[in-house]
């Protein structure tokens, strides 16, 4: 696979440290709160000289869709950590409210937007892979995805990436 050769050229791996130097994350969620952790880890991993792969599957694909990447939302429903009784989350408009609150607090923390984080990650050499069956399920082609996406792969390629000496996470 051609894209596998791309890695931040300025940083050599540090074999003397005898630590794993590859990070493979499955991104399975399409909500705003769950979009941040993989991108934060990926960007940091790339800065540490790791080879980083993000594999987007199921609703995680929404992080790569031109149509949805700017409008990821956080829902209070089924999220007991939100500062409101769960039942109120059912009221129309609550998702919009929670999303606006989260965007505001992220902005206050000077946290980049998801699009900005994707761009930074890509510039740092992070690989973006879209899951093929998820694409079909959502009736999408590569043209529907943002240009940072390297390729569309299946479970075999993902497992091959993950079966090398890598840190693997499922988010």
């Amino acid at each position: 696979m051609q894209t596998l050769a791309r890695q931040t050229p300025e940083l050599e791996t540090s074999p003397h440290l005898d630590k794993r130097n590859k990070l493979v994350i499955v991104c399975s969620k399409g909500s705003l709160d769950m979009a941040y952790p993989p991108l934060m880890l990926a960007t940091t991993g790339a800065a540490m000289g790791m080879e980083v792969h993000l594999y987007f599957t199921f609703w995680g694909i929404n992080m790569l869709r031109k149509k949805t990447v700017e409008s990821l939302k956080i829902s209070p429903v089924g999220n007991p950590a939100m500062p409101m009784p769960n039942i109120l989350g059912m009221i129309p408009g609550m998702t919009r409210l929670a999303t606006r609150m989260m965007r505001k607090s992220m902005d206050k923390m000077k946290m980049p937007t998801i699009q900005e984080m994707i761009k930074t990650a890509h510039d740092s050499g992070v690989h973006f892979h879209a899951c093929s069956p998820s694409m079909q399920m959502m009736n999408l082609t590569k043209d529907d995805l943002i240009p940072e996406v390297d390729d569309i792969i299946g479970a075999t390629t993902y497992l091959d990436l993950a079966s090398e000496d890598a840190i693997t996470l499922f988010i």
Partner: peptide, 17 residues
């Protein structure tokens, strides 16, 4: 100043490059 993780490392890495 003012940015949270991974801001400082990302900025440091950019300068490093």
């Amino acid at each position: 100043r003012g940015t949270m993780c991974p801001g400082p490392i990302t900025d440091l890495f950019r300068a490093f490059r």
